[in-house]
């Protein structure tokens, strides 16, 4: 990865952080569905970046979100988990042509169906880890599980909207 790409990723982290901390942290639907759009950052890290830099960038992203929402360690743990799983998941769902011409796996380049398959498990794993770590126990299991499902749906929707708003002009290599 060139240093230019790193700088771009750093700008992305800052923008996602501000959006999450100032706007989306306060957006809770029906008191159940949380908007955690910053995971779109982890989904949209360029494929050329190595596993190590993906992990480090995701940790930074999660840690900053933690500092802004007073949940030290919670978002970092969940975000690092999905950053670790992402390359493995990408390998499992390799499309017929491979990823040869793909810079960033956006909805425009990869197609709607592939994108849904790519996104849903990652969102779900992230929310599952996040909400149970935050609760610190399995005591209110169904209450938390309802939160996980509703938040996953809500974030899937938001991430797709983000695709059409901010990732429209990503060019394939």
């Amino acid at each position: 990865m060139s240093s230019r790409t790193y700088i771009i990723q750093l700008i992305h982290i800052t923008l996602y952080l501000l959006a999450q901390a100032l706007v989306f942290n306060d957006l809770v639907l029906f008191g159940r569905a949380f908007a955690l759009v910053y995971i779109s950052f982890v989904l949209m890290v360029p494929l050329e970046s190595g596993r190590v830099s993906l992990l480090l960038m995701s940790f930074v992203m999660g840690f900053l979100i933690d500092v802004f929402s007073d949940t030290l360690g919670v978002h970092s743990a969940a975000t690092v988990l999905i950053a670790f799983l992402r390359p493995h998941w990408l390998n499992l769902i390799t499309p017929r042509g491979g990823y040869e011409n793909v810079s960033i796996p956006t909805i425009q380049i990869m197609g709607f169906q592939w994108f849904i398959v790519y996104t849903i498990p990652i969102i779900f794993v992230h929310h599952f880890a996040l909400f149970f770590i935050e609760a610190g126990s399995f005591n209110s299991f169904f209450f938390i599980f309802k939160r996980i499902l509703l938040s996953s749906l809500f974030n899937l929707f938001l991430i797709i909207v983000f695709q059409y708003f901010f990732y429209r002009n990503v060019k394939s290599i």
């Binding site: 190590v52 992990l55 480090l56 030290l72 360690g73 919670v74 970092s76 690092v80």
Partner: peptide, 27 residues
Amino acid sequence: LFLVLEFVSLILLVRFNPYHSASFFYS
């Protein structure tokens, strides 16, 4: 690295008692 970062997160989660730490890591 994944294990190390998860371990760091866990330490942040468990060890940060406000009465002993600076306010740096909080809002």
